[in-house]
């Protein structure tokens, strides 16, 4: 008989002890993974609240882009190019934060200023102000979405592991232990009968 998760079965007491130890370890692993899964679910539920801000951010970005369009119409492409020249590009810092062993990104804006010169057209300045405001407000959402993505991925993986352990590996080990126990019991019984027969022969019965 074969057990896919266990591998080759040896009907020995040593093997049985090892099997029992491994089964206990697997059980502890399942418990730990379940704890991790619960924690990840809690984290993702927290993040879900932040993700609801997406609607507002979308609206803000739409407003900012319509302002950019207006600035383009009022100030013209040359003024937009000048604004691009004077803008400090968006610089971000990405650090990683561990949430129950899952590495999630933490993005912070280190430098970002779109309108720095008073000689820019006011429509361009207004568009720049709206756009930078929208981008600044978008950053926590970006963080939340990136974290959510990683956590969701880790959660799916953890759940697959828990299921595999609970439904396949541990039952396999339990069955293997039972099988080895039965084999050893049979062997014990056989040995007992052999000894008994031997004693009878020796006594001349």
């Amino acid at each position: 008989m074969s057990f896919r998760s266990v591998g080759r079965i040896l009907p020995t007491k040593g093997f049985l002890i090892r099997l029992r130890e491994r089964a206990a370890l697997l059980q502890m692993g399942v418990e730990a993974l379940k704890m991790k899964r619960d924690q990840l679910i809690r984290e993702s539920q927290e993040l879900l609240k932040q993700l609801h801000a997406r609607k507002d951010i979308d609206k803000k970005l739409e407003e900012a882009f319509s302002m950019v369009k207006m600035a383009y119409a009022v100030a013209g492409p040359q003024e937009m190019r000048k604004a691009a020249l004077l803008a400090t590009p968006l610089r971000i810092e990405v650090r990683t934060k561990s949430v129950v062993g899952v590495e999630t990104p933490e993005i912070t804006t280190s430098e970002f200023k779109l309108a720095v010169s008073p000689s820019l057209n006011s429509a361009v300045m207004a568009a720049a102000a709206k756009l930078s405001e929208a981008i600044r407000e978008m950053m926590p959402l970006v963080n939340a979405e990136a974290r959510f993505e990683r956590i969701a991925e880790a959660l799916a993986q953890t759940m697959r592991k828990v299921n595999a352990l609970e439904k396949i590996v541990i039952p396999d080990y339990t069955a293997a232990i039972k099988y080895v126990e039965e084999l050893l019991e049979e062997e014990d019984l056989e040995e007992f009968l052999t000894i008994k027969k031997y004693r009878q022969i020796k006594r001349g019965e």
Binding site: M67, V74, K130
Partner: peptide, 10 residues
């Protein structure tokens, strides 16, 4: 109305 005076130059 807009929160920014985009028509200033105009």
């Amino acid at each position: 109305k807009y929160g920014v005076p985009w028509t200033l130059d105009l």
